[in-house]
């Protein structure tokens, strides 16, 4: 069973197509990342899944229920949409009480969630006196309040310090490992790469990749770096790669071969058979940042 399924989900705002026929299937359990450049349609997609805006066309299901009937599933979903929004003159604890009363959630969970996100001793402070990181933590506490099966978080680490980022990442991974589904958008690609099992990447309103993180990274320019003990054998290593159909480049006494990591044992075997002793053999995949820029066609300065 999927936690989120979209079929041709589309949203237009006047002449602007914000989301263009998105198709994705997100399995239940684990942490899934949702990445894309600014304005690519992430927040609009999340808002449609949470019943805040209606799609122009297409369909979607969340936890097996159509998004046309959000009441059927939203009590099992925790959401944080962009910047957290609360009542400034209420304390953190009072803010959670407002939503606990509205959702019919157990009041006992308020203190529990405040502790979980590190606000246990600050729940009595007024929200307007919170730092950005504390506001973000309160937003995550609110999302966790219903003990949701699916957690949809839009930029949950915004404003958090490095320790906070690590804590929230660890919390999300624990939730995912515990059987809950966490769907998280973030512009911190290293965080997504570290925390997520699967990923949905969108650009210009459409999905450019949806699958496991391993697949994504392997699909994007995996390389094998190898170095012979004797420099004279480097040319022969290049020949071995060429004979196997892979191009290679000489880099500082080693070679980098454009080949999947699974070919590394074959290279080791071929080198041994050719009497070449390797002093270095390392398979590397592209990191998420490289994959992101490759798949969205953007360079690192963000120009298109």
């Amino acid at each position: 069973m999927t936690s989120i399924r979209t079929i041709g989900l589309t949203k237009d705002f006047g002449d602007l197509r914000a989301v263009d026929s998105i198709n994705m299937d997100l399995p239940q359990g684990g942490v899934a990342g949702f990445v894309g450049p600014n304005g690519s349609g992430k927040s609009t997609t999340i808002r449609m899944l949470l019943g805040l805006i209606k799609p122009t066309s297409g369909a979607a299901e969340v936890l097996g229920h159509s998004i046309d009937n959000p009441s059927a599933y939203l009590h099992r979903v925790g959401g944080l949409i962009e910047a957290p929004a609360f009542y400034p003159s209420l304390t953190g604890e009072e803010n959670l009480r407002v939503f606990a009363a509205l959702g019919g959630f157990a009041r006992g969970r308020i203190a529990e969630m405040l502790d979980l996100v590190g606000l246990g001793d600050r729940g009595g402070d007024k929200y307007k006196n919170y730092s950005l990181g504390m506001k973000q933590r309160l937003g995550i506490a609110l999302a966790l309040l219903p003990d949701p099966d699916l957690l949809v978080l839009d930029e949950p680490t915004n404003g958090l310090d490095p320790q906070g980022i690590v804590e929230i990442r660890s919390l999300l991974m624990d939730l995912g490992a515990g059987g809950k589904t966490v769907f998280v958008s973030s512009h911190l690609l290293a965080e997504i790469e570290a925390a997520c099992d699967s990923i949905v990447m969108i650009d210009h309103g459409g999905v450019v990749f949806a699958g496991t993180m391993v697949d994504l990274l392997n699909r994007n320019s995996p390389t094998i770096r190898a170095a012979a003990e004797n420099d004279i054998d480097t040319i022969r290593l290049i020949e071995l790669a060429t004979n196997a159909g892979y191009s290679s480049t000489r880099v500082n006494g080693a070679i980098e071969i454009d080949a999947p990591s699974v070919w590394a044992p074959d290279l080791n075997r071929l080198a041994w058979q050719a009497g070449i002793t390797l002093k270095e053999l390392q398979a590397t995949s592209a990191d998420l940042e490289q994959a992101f820029f490759a798949m969205t066609g953007n360079n690192k300065t963000g120009s298109k």
């Binding site: 949470l50 019943g51 805040l52 609360f86 939503f99």
Partner: peptide
């Protein structure tokens, strides 16, 4: 203005009830 309406709607999707 505060943006709390979106969290209210997520917590209570039945807008008429809200």
């Amino acid at each position: 203005n505060k943006g709390t309406i979106r969290m209210l709607f997520v917590t209570e999707p039945n807008r008429l009830k809200l």
